[in-house]
Amino acid sequence: MKVSRNGSRQTIAALVEDRPGVLTRVASLFRRRGYNIESLAVGTTDEQGVSRMTIVVEGTSEVGDQVAKQLDKLIDVINAAVLDSTESIDRELALIKVVARPDQRREILDVAEIFRASVVDLSVSSLIIQITAANETIEALTDNLRPYGILEMVRTGAIALVRGEDTTQVVEFEDDELRRFHMGSGRIPTGQLPHLSD
């Protein structure tokens, strides 16, 4: 089942200024307001100085709306919106290391193939399976792999985009001076700092 708008999980996309402390501000907000982060993924965007966070939180759609509005209140958050699950694509990457004795390999490969996952590492007694899919698909794959023994696994957390032409985008652009201030403020400048005794 996909993440539904009224389900127990909400996906929020936030465009944020790439500034020192922005992740702390977001994390601090979640702690202070008592929201549970299921996953958080951050990466750069096509515009310099702007990062995109995809945050999955537990809760109803009302919780999702509150989270988005509280996020939007942060000055460093350019905009934040709850993504409607039926109108957006969300994907997550997982690497799963499974116990695979030679006599079990074929079976496990069949499972992986059903889920369109691929094998990226092989040893005498284990496999690493890579899958890029929606959260629920990954859950289903791990359920099917668990009987063989999952040694360890790592997941990226979801990233999501709205379907079609609609975008979650920055409409205003900053001039170079302002961008320099916003991106630099709070970071120790490069080069020689004045000596302590100065």
Partner: peptide, 11 residues
């Protein structure tokens, strides 16, 4: 950080 509208560390 959690008790202000915004803050700055000016470097």
């Amino acid at each position: 950080m959690p008790t202000v509208k915004h803050n700055y560390l000016v470097m």
